[in-house]
Amino acid sequence: MLRVTNLEKAYKGQGKTVRALDAATLQVAPGELVAVQGPSGCGKTTLLLVAAGLLKPDAGQVLVNAQDPYALAPDGRARFRAENMGFVFQQFHLVPYLSALDNILAPTLARPAPDAAERAAHLARHFGLAERQDHLPGELSTGERQRTALARALLHNPRLLLADEPTGNLDEASGKVVLSHLAEFAKAGGAVLLVTHDPRAAEYATRTLRMESGRIET
């Protein structure tokens, strides 16, 4: 589902160059939940953004479902993301003025679907948000927010789910709920790339990779 090969990415600034990705290579097959762990600043988020088609690498190749997203024009790449990927972030990135249900429906802004409303309602129930679906993010607990973000990521049944420290702001119980949902998604045939330094992730991952100074150690 996801194959990244020899990715290179460097950030230049103030006379210094920081290598965020150094020949990073990995692949995530359908049904896999691959956890990439490493210290802060090792390049985990960069890896995720490059894999998502949001940050073009200096070198190397990204293939999602056997297609290079960087070969597409920007709008085509956005459409490709909407059709194939889901995202979960540490900060949830919910739209503050939309209810939980509307946040779950946010991907339809890019890719309308006739059954989106029903599926959103189903996801809200599935993630225990049915009673809170009309509330704004500011009125939800952090766990509810992350579950809302997760439901949003799953609205279009993506093939690949990219999660960046999804448990970083959650308590233990909420973190477990989120990780179990990610594992559930993988078991259902989806591919999950999870970058985290949460040690609990290993319990739910099918594979755990270590990342250090932009390199992925297998």
Binding site: A78, E83, V95, A106, L109
Partner: peptide, 16 residues
């Protein structure tokens, strides 16, 4: 800015 970033990540085009 955050909202724009996530909408773009979710596939919303720059034109939209």
């Amino acid at each position: 800015r955050d909202e724009i970033a996530i909408l773009r990540a979710l596939g919303t085009s720059a034109r939209r």
